[in-house]
């Protein structure tokens, strides 16, 4: 487990690509893109089933381990309207328990996908102020608050000894912190650590701070 201090609050970066805020017993995930495979199949692209259920299983494990009082989705929870297959939505809804509130900060996909009635969700628009944080989907800075957001699907390439890896990561800048995409069937956008941007890679069972030197170097001409 990797802990960082942001805006005076202790945050725990979980290798399952989620963020744990102990002071508020809040679990945050971004970009779950539930039902993406379903949406592809509905449009005639043969993608195997199973990735959404993997994502849900990971979420169930987190809920069990941390017993949060609140679960926050930082946008792009459901991939598309056609992704709301009834069976899948029911399996998703079954993860809900009475002592945990679910909050969705609306992202670009959610606007098109609509709100699934099966899920007991409170849906809000960004920025959603919470303590020192502004909970968002898009990573635009907000005056007076530190932004926690998704949308970007940050990842980092690490090279060492001829070996190369690309790992989803957290990216914390001066005013905005990015969560990795939680969904299994999601793409990534590469980030480069700089003095103002700290990256934490989700490497299997651990979260590792990425030193500036070990990430792929891109020399400026």
């Amino acid at each position: 487990m990797t802990e960082i201090l942001i805006a005076g609050e202790r945050l725990v970066l979980l290798p399952e690509r989620a963020l744990w805020w102990p002071a508020r017993a809040t679990l945050m995930v971004a970009d779950a893109h539930i039902g993406k495979g379903t949406a592809f199949r509905a449009l005639g692209v043969p993608v195997p089933a199973g990735s959404s259920d993997d994502t849900l299983a990971r979420l169930a494990g987190l809920l069990e381990r941390h017993a949060p009082r609140r679960l926050v989705f930082l946008g792009d929870l459901i991939h598309a309207r056609s992704a709301r297959e009834p069976g899948l939505m029911q399996r998703f809804a079954a993860l809900h328990s009475a002592d945990c509130d679910w909050l969705l900060v609306r992202g670009n996909h959610d606007a098109h996908a609509g709100e699934p009635p099966e899920l007991a969700l409170t849906v809000v628009d960004e920025p959603w102020a919470d303590g020192p944080f502004a909970l968002c989907h898009h990573p635009a800075p907000q005056p007076g608050r530190y932004v926690l957001a998704g949308h970007v699907h940050p990842a980092v390439r690490i090279e060492a000894g001829g070996d190369r890896l690309r790992l989803p990561c957290f990216a914390f800048g001066e005013a905005v912190g990015l969560l990795p995409a939680f969904g299994q069937f999601t793409g990534h956008a590469d980030q480069t650590p700089t003095p103002g941007l700290h990256l934490y890679a989700c490497a299997g069972e651990r979260v590792l701070a990425v030193p500036h030197s070990s990430a792929r170097r891109r020399g400026r001409a």
């Binding site: 692209v45 993608v47 195997p48 299994q184 069937f185 793409g187």
Partner: peptide, 25 residues
């Protein structure tokens, strides 16, 4: 159109999903 944009996915990601969920493909 929108539906085509929803379909944008990298082949690398698909490769991983197939390897995991449909390895005999």
């Amino acid at each position: 159109g929108k539906s085509a944009r929803q379909l944008q996915v990298s082949s690398e990601l698909l490769f991983d999903v197939f390897t995991r969920h449909d390895p005999d493909n």
